[in-house]
Amino acid sequence: MTPAANAEKMLVVSGLETRFNTSRGPVAAVRDVNIEVGRGEIVGLVGESGSGKSVTGLSLMGLIDAPGEITGGRILLNGEDLRSVGGKRLRQLRGDRIAMIFQDPMMTLNPVLRIDTQMIEAIRAHDRKISREAARQRCRDALGLVGIPSPDERLLAYPHEFSGGMRQRVAIAIAMLNNPDIIIADEPTTALDVTIQAQILAEMQKLCRQRGTALIWVTHDLTVVAGLADRVYVMYAGSVVEQGPVDALLDRPIHPYTDGLIRSIPSHNEPGRPLHQIPGMTPALDRMPQGCRFHPRCARRTEGCLSEIPLMDFGGGRRARCIHPLVEG
């Protein structure tokens, strides 16, 4: 790929593979994942627990801890391959160009450090020369931006003096401090009340649109993605099984797994009917089925599903790994 081709796509992930070295040998938690995110685009990354969506998010940040490691692929951020830039450059990019928010707001802030300490260090890590007062002002603005009242006082507070929703706002403010090109949000609303969840989703969407910040929203909840994202990637057992614009994907899913996910959402239209379930369970990482990884749970499987299935183009920006698609391409 030439740099010119990447100009539009700010983040290009191709062939990403992340492995964990277990006592029974290495297992790939993420395999052949390709993701492209344009400038200011909001992308959903959906999957069940264990589908590899969080590992994908952490891989993009270079935050995979031992015994895990990225074993293949390229992660191009503004044309720079994060896998080959080295630790120093990666640290410079993290929190500055590419930021991350985590699931549990009770755990992401250090309980013994004041909010201002935790915010200012995020600025100083990338700009050593900034004055204390200027850094404070930026923190104040960022807190105001995410809707935290009287930011001046709150800067001096400790994390335990905030509610869960407020802590997640602080985390979002920290991620936005340096005006990054992209934020990876790893289920940041899962641990919150539904009302707070809706507020934060709406604010996050507004902020990213205003500032032209791209967003990868990692979640297990298709309904969250429906109102938020431009495009969706559906992950199953470590790889992307379907991708496409959000409306098309939700209305007319191609992959039987996506269809199963959508039909599992409790619906208001048919009260009293038993909920749909996808039969079987997500396979264990070290016992992946051959070929299409979904085939043991799939009603449409045939002999052909046992061979490796590539991501196929279905037009309109839609792709899926399925030889028995629900929608003809």
Partner: peptide
């Protein structure tokens, strides 16, 4: 998780150890 978050902020390893972890 706060160590991971500090890394995600781009904070140096030295500061993570001496400030976040030691305290």
């Amino acid at each position: 998780e706060y160590v991971r978050f500090a890394r995600a902020k781009g904070v140096s390893e030295a500061r993570i150890v001496t400030v976040h972890v030691l305290k």
